[in-house]
């Protein structure tokens, strides 16, 4: 992946930067310029915010046939999570035995390596989910 393309999204990948429509209150992640519900009524009213990072697992899949960069993780879990702000995110669920994953479990985001451009390239960091245990 182009370094600049990834870098542009770092605020969202590191700190879950999102936007809330000032007209209807709907939250969007990643941020977008116009609300998909209110359209032109939302122009100039999209407010920047950060998701708090906690949510509930809505669905998941255990990956046994992984892309080359994720071979070392398999079998691993990919989850769809409804964040407490209502928006849905998809990412890897880590620090968990796939057998222990349950729909409805509480998870939180944590920063992990999500990829790299080979051994000499840039390392990419972003959010992954981990079970809330503490």
């Amino acid at each position: 992946m182009a370094t600049a393309r990834f870098w542009r999204d770092n605020p969202s990948r590191y700190n879950l930067k999102a936007v809330r429509c000032g007209n209807c209150g709907k939250v969007f992640f990643p941020p977008r310029a116009v609300c998909s519900v209110c359209h032109r009524k939302s122009i100039g009213k999209m407010e920047c915010m950060s998701l708090k990072g906690e949510g509930e697992l809505i669905s998941f899949s255990v990956v046994h046939d992984a892309p080359s960069q994720f071979e070392i993780h398999k079998p691993y879990v990919v989850a769809i999570v409804r964040m407490d702000e209502g928006v849905m995110l998809t990412s890897q669920l880590i620090d968990v035995d796939p057998k222990e994953v349950r729909i409805g479990m509480r998870v939180r985001t944590t920063l992990r390596k999500v990829g790299e451009d080979g051994p000499a390239g840039v390392i990419y960091y972003g959010y992954k989910f981990a079970p809330v245990r503490a």
Partner: peptide, 28 residues
């Protein structure tokens, strides 16, 4: 909490996690 929240792994898994096994391509 971090000391008690633990999962014990074997040497093969440790070697894989710590990059002690030569892999084809990169990993993350």
């Amino acid at each position: 909490h971090y000391i008690e929240d633990r999962q014990v792994i074997d040497y093969a898994t440790y070697a894989k996690f710590r990059g002690k096994i030569r892999l084809k391509g990169g990993s993350a």
